[in-house]
């Protein structure tokens, strides 16, 4: 319309748009309601099953056995890609997503979080297995006898094998 001077229209565009940048951090940032930020693990709910560890693509969540009878779930924000897959797979909804993203710090330890679980001990061999909470969760969800859950997987297997043996032995006796 303005022919060769059409490019001057950019001034109109600028005037219409106004000032769009913000004086962040003095003004709040533009983060939508659906933004995925840092996760928070509720240690009262967590049972230490490790589903989140298996699902986590960048290994931001890892689990290791430490010290005398403890299993530790570690979350390192530095590796986290904020995909929230852990939230999807957690069987007890212990992980909650937040909209937090201002995570810069001058102390790398601030980026670490951990949930410490007491491991269950086997009533038969006193060996350590699973966690106390996971044991409770299994008993609550599945109709398995306490007698069975109280033993570590190895003792359970041995018990089963012995039972087979006994039966076979009994049969041969008869």
């Amino acid at each position: 319309m303005m022919g060769k001077l059409g490019f001057v229209k950019i001034l109109v565009i600028a005037a219409e748009a106004g000032r769009v940048t913000r004086k962040y951090p003095y003004e709040p940032p533009l983060v939508s309601s659906d933004f995925r930020g840092k996760i928070e693990i509720d240690e009262t709910k967590c049972i230490g099953c490790g589903s989140c560890v298996l699902a986590c693509p960048p290994n931001a969540l890892v689990m290791s056995d430490e010290g005398e009878g403890y299993r530790v779930l570690k979350y390192f924000v530095g590796r986290c890609i904020f995909c929230w897959r852990c939230i999807d797979v957690c069987p007890v909804d212990a992980i909650k997503g937040t909209r937090e993203f201002e995570l810069a710090t001058d102390n790398v330890e601030d980026l670490d979080e951990a949930v410490i679980h007491k491991r269950a001990s086997c009533t038969e061999c006193n060996g350590l297995y699973s966690t106390v909470k996971q044991k409770a969760y299994v008993m609550e969800k599945a109709p398995i006898t306490e007698n069975y859950v109280d033993k570590c997987p190895e003792c359970r297997r041995n018990k089963l094998l012995r039972a087979f043996e006994k039966r076979r032995g009994g049969e041969s006796l008869e």
Partner: peptide, 16 residues
């Protein structure tokens, strides 16, 4: 004036 020019540029860019 160069500082003012930068301010004008920012305004045309819709920046602070």
């Amino acid at each position: 004036l160069d500082g003012v020019e930068r301010k004008i540029r920012a305004r045309i860019h819709s920046r602070i």
